[in-house]
Amino acid sequence: MSTSIVSTQQHNKLHPHKFALWVAIASILMMFAGLTSAYVVKSNQTGWRSFVMPKIFWVSTVVIMVSSITMQMAVKAFKNRNMQQYRAMLGVTFVLGIAFVISQVFGFEALWENNVRFKGASGAGQFFWPITGLHALHVIGGVVALLIIFFRSVIGKTKTYNPVPVEVMSTYWHFVDGLWLYLMIFFLILG
């Protein structure tokens, strides 16, 4: 099999890996649509209990938004073949990704202190756990992917200027960022 899976006449089309990512994003969105629509339906029923978002989630929000910017800068540096800056920005994005997850954990602890827990009657707080937990898992997946492409750029045997993996990475990263913004606004309005 030839090394490239893309034949000559396919160059003007979207790269299959990028396209696959968009389909994956649609798929992930369906999961969160399922969860948040379940939330909406339940929130109209009697006995619904709301909760107050701890302030630390604002920190998470700022952190992940900044990480999106650094990710974009990494892509730009890669395209300018400025590998030094590319690696630096990738590293910053990686650190910010971890910072986001840690900040989320602090937020979860604050919620737990505020008595928003698993057990007992249904309410907004109970939905918050699986929804934000699944989001955090998707961010952790992104952090692992960042780590992999970071190490590839450091110890890679061959120099590669193929932008597809980096672009796929950045699209996914912007997606988990946007997904968090959606969830944040969702819980602020309906929480």
Partner: peptide, 19 residues
């Protein structure tokens, strides 16, 4: 994915005491 979200909630109900 929607089935998955339903199963995640089921798992929470089974083991974490959610409702």
């Amino acid at each position: 994915p929607v089935l998955l979200s339903g199963l995640v909630l089921l798992m929470f109900d089974r083991h974490l005491g959610t409702s």
